[in-house]
Amino acid sequence: MNIVVCVKQVPDPAAPAGSFSLDRAAKKVVVAPSVPFAVSDYDEYAVEAALRLKEAVAGSKVKVVSLGASHVLEVIKKTVAMGADEIYLIQDAGLAQGDAIATAHTLAAAIKKAGPFDVLMFGRQSADLDQGIVGSGVAAILGIPVVTNAVKIEAKGDKLHVSRLAVVGTETIETPTPVAVTVSSELGQPRYATMRGIMNSRRVTPVVWKAGDLGADGSKVGAAGSLTETVDAYVPQSSTKVELVEGENLADAGHKLAQRLRQARII
């Protein structure tokens, strides 16, 4: 089975909130230089899902595709250290400027160029933009079914059973391949790098492509292909002022908190 995982490199979302600020004029988030890059949170779960499927279906291969203006190699190579096989990097500042729809067109072109595929994996949403658009977009462009917010993926003959988060609980969808799947964290923790994986990651040389290599329609990618525009950005204001309840000791503070909430008619 040929599995492709789309992985985005983002500033570590677990960095302290204070390391992110807003440049209102540029309508952009500014990240402190101390913040390291990471594989976008849910994309690691997508890699994990791909590796579980690879283990279940003999002869499978996992390719990682990433679009960015530039990449930190050891960040992307973490996916190989976990067990992925190949890396394809689209390194192009122009293409990286596109919105979700333009990004989907770029990734779809890259996926086709990287060879035959059976399953495409995505994170449910990127950790910096939280859009949840790109995976469904690639599926629509390639004309294949999509299952979003997957928590479990099993191979059943030539089909897949994909369990997804439903309105209540989960539901299992039977789908033929090729199919696109977006993965949520309920799948379970991504594995750590293995010794063998780390050795492999040293050997793997990413394939690097620029816009010209993809043969994508120039009107559909980058800024030209973007159907949305950020026209403003701001910091949401919270007007709440906390009233800290104290006591002789912490148990007393607990009593007083209950009394205070009762007095304020909150409980």
Binding site: F20, K27, V29, A127, L227, T228, D232, P236
Partner: peptide, 13 residues
């Protein structure tokens, strides 16, 4: 944006 730290205003073309 950024998990809710900021907000962006989007116009759709």
């Amino acid at each position: 944006l950024t998990g809710g730290l900021f907000r962006q205003v989007i116009a759709i073309k």
